[in-house]
Nucleic acid binder design. Structure first.
Length: 507
RNA sequence: CGGGGUGUGGCGCAGCCCGGUUAGCGCACCUGCCUUGGGAGCAGGGGGUCGGAAGUUCAAAUCUUCUCGCCCCGACCA
């Protein structure tokens, strides 16, 4: 079968990557901009992906001893005030509630009324409000550790927004833990980063680089911040999850104190960690192609879509009966402990249109079944991961028997493909001229896909970091755990360096 | 907050400079026929107080003033 001449997306990745990203979201019906500036409506297909992510992550959190709870959306202004760096980091992007009532004015317009004595801040993150509770709950070393997660929405008043990647309101989970010792808190920070790494790689099929953030990219108020960084198809980095070791900073701010075994009063050690709906953006940009969304089976809202083909009622009955049999067989199976979701699209629209609709939505397996298949006991199946979207006619039994294996293979292939891409676009760069060349687009007006993950030496000074950022918009994504100690010279100033870091452009 | 742009059925646009029939086109939508294994075709149909307010005029989508929204570029960011 010939390759498609035309792609389903009006623009390709090569043409205009940012535009392509928006088209994929639109075509797959993941989300849309709402009337509220900077906020998005997550549509059912997109939200189901999020639910699938939530389920997997939530299980991992439970497996590592955490439980869920819920804390208020509103934070008293004074709470936010308690930690100096935290204030500085978040103050300029906080939404503030100043009134608690609406009244009709003379013109019949609703106006805010009932001014609050103390304004309330809508949480940009919850360290302070959760800390206030923890301060009450913790008295003795016997009360520790506290291992709590919350699924919530947060608001950060951003200047410029992009669907899923940066919106004013977004959904996330934030884990907040309290420990008696520094070592235990440090361990927790790393443990949860690893949970994120495993999730990204095994469930989302996105390879990531674990590492520590530099001082300039650190969470406001944290002692150290760690991240997983993923490479998108335009070779830019996307921070996909973060874990923070907060030391005793927030414990001091919120007065989380306990009496130790030795009877001494001590401040506790805290951590926090989170991933957000941004991961959906990562998913899109890591796997999708010029025909739309491509989803790893483990988070796809549906694994299989069946398009029945018939001309009249009699054929319809034959085909639908055949499909019923397949549904029964599929219902018996599980893919990673989850029911296999099979959708039959029997809408009365043209076959071609229907066909493309599901390609754009990224369903892993698309099956067409017509009278000829019923006769021959076959089905026609197209794997979304196949670049040519080739139709394969196989026996029904073969399809049923190999279903889980097929999905597993697709999941693995997606990871391998993304991993090769990451490897092929990660270079060791030691010379600034070369560094500059690779990070400079040929077309400054509308930059083409360029750049890479550069493994380069860095002296550790934020001056060099800032200078590179200023000149090339390239930053240190993180300092990977896997980088070995090795002597070298800073890519920018030539000063001494003992380790390579990952430089890249980022979202 | 600085610089630029733009508002006309659900979406994308034309018309505006030079006021004048019933404001048009493509896509989408609805109905019928026909089709259905790679994005159909034909016929008919519904939907707009032209972002808002004031003004000029016999007459305003079109001219004037004010106002609001949105988009892009810069400083900030998971």
């Amino acid at each position: 079968m010939a390759e498609y001449k035309k792609t389903a997306m009006p623009v390709t990745r090569e043409d205009d990557y940012p535009q392509w990203y928006l088209e994929v979201i639109k075509a797959a019906e993941l989300a849309e901009n709402s009337d509220v500036r900077g906020c998005m409506v997550i549509k059912p297909w997109g939200y189901t992906i999020w639910e699938n992510m939530q389920r997997e992550l939530d299980q991992s959190f439970k497996d590592t001893g955490h439980t869920n709870a819920y804390f208020p959306l509103f934070i008293p202004l004074e709470y936010l005030q308690q930690e100096a760096d935290h204030v500085e980091g978040f103050a300029k992007e906080c939404a503030v509630v100043t009134h608690h009532r609406l009244s009709l004015n003379g013109d019949g317009k609703l106006v805010p009324d009932g001014k609050l004595e103390e304004p309330l801040v809508i949480r940009p993150t919850s360290e302070t409000i959760i800390g206030a509770s923890y301060a009450k709950w913790v008295n003795s070393y016997r009360d520790l550790p506290i291992l709590i997660n919350q699924w919530a929405n947060v608001v950060r008043w951003e200047m410029r927004t992009r669907l899923f990647l940066r919106t004013t309101e977004f959904l996330w989970q934030e884990g907040h833990t309290v420990h008696a010792t520094k070592a235990e808190a440090t361990e927790e920070t790393h443990k949860m980063l690893y949970v994120y790494k495993e999730f990204a790689e095994n469930v989302l099929a996105i390879p990531v680089i674990q590492g520590e953030k530099t001082e300039s990219e650190r969470f406001p108020g944290a002692v150290s911040t760690y991240s997983i960084e993923a490479m998108m198809q335009d070779k830019k980095a996307l921070q996909s999850g973060t874990s923070h070791f907060l030391g005793q900073n927030f414990a001091k701010a919120s007065k989380i104190k306990f009496q130790s075994k030795e009877g001494k009063e001590e401040f506790a050690w805290t951590t926090s960690w989170g991933v957000s709906t941004r991961l959906i953006g990562a998913l899109i940009m890591a796997h999708s192609d010029d025909n739309g969304l491509v989803l790893p089976p483990r988070v796809a809202p549906a694994h299989i879509v069946i398009l029945p083909i018939y001309k009249d009622d009699s054929e319809r009955e034959t085909v639908m009966n055949y499909i019923e049999d397949i549904k029964l067989e599929v219902a018996k199976q599980r893919f990673f402990e989850r029911k296999i979701v099979l959708h039959v699209d029997d809408r009365d629209i043209r076959g071609g249109e229907k066909n493309w609709y599901w390609i754009k939505k990224g369903v892993p397996l698309k099956i067409e079944i017509g009278p000829r298949d019923v006769e021959k006991n076959t089905i026609s199946v197209v794997k979304r991961t196949d670049p040519g979207l080739k139709k394969n006619f196989i026996l029904k039994e073969e399809f049923i028997n190999c279903l889980v294996e097929t999905l597993t293979n697709m999941q693995n292939e997606m990871y391998e493909k993304a991993n090769s891409f990451l490897k092929e676009n990660t270079y060791e760069i030691n010379d600034y001229a070369e560094f500059k060349k690779i990070f400079t687009p040929k077309n400054e007006e509308k930059p083409e896909i360029h750049g890479c993950f550069a493994r380069s030496h860095w002296c550790g000074s934020s001056k060099c970091e800032d200078a590179i950022k200023e000149e090339l918009k390239v930053t240190v994504r993180n300092i990977p755990f896997t980088e070995k100690q090795c002597e070298g010279n800073c890519i920018y100033c030539g000063g001494k360096s003992s380790k390579r870091v990952i430089f890249a452009k980022s979202y």
